[in-house]
Amino acid sequence: MSSQQRSSPSITACPDGLLLIRGDIELLTGTGDEITRKRKTIALCRCGASTIKPHCDGTHKLINFTTDNPQEPAAKPTEKSTTGSSTTDLQETVSDELGTERRTPSS
């Protein structure tokens, strides 16, 4: 664990999951609008599959997201996926897991 001052911001890259943000840090959308922060410590999605982006909703566990870097570049730079299943397949699996209704991010 770090010995840093509590007030200085920190980002913890959680293995196989999200980025945990602590401390005072400005959180902005691409257009520079502030993203409302409901709690002191927040989790930002880095698997891409969350339904409440930019926040993490735990979906990384359902899609077996891993933050291990491949030992050797297994895929050519043009191929996006190294997991064998396309993003669409994963989305379908997840949405099936969650039933038909999807949560609207604004609620």
């Binding site: 959680c14 945990l20 709690r39 410590t41 927040i42 989790a43 409440i52 993490c56 909703d57």
Partner: peptide, 23 residues
Amino acid sequence: ADVTWYFDEHVEADAVHEQIAGR
């Protein structure tokens, strides 16, 4: 939303809490 707020709130909150609680 009066009924679902609690559950929706926990989706975001507990994704944070589980990391803190585990590590």
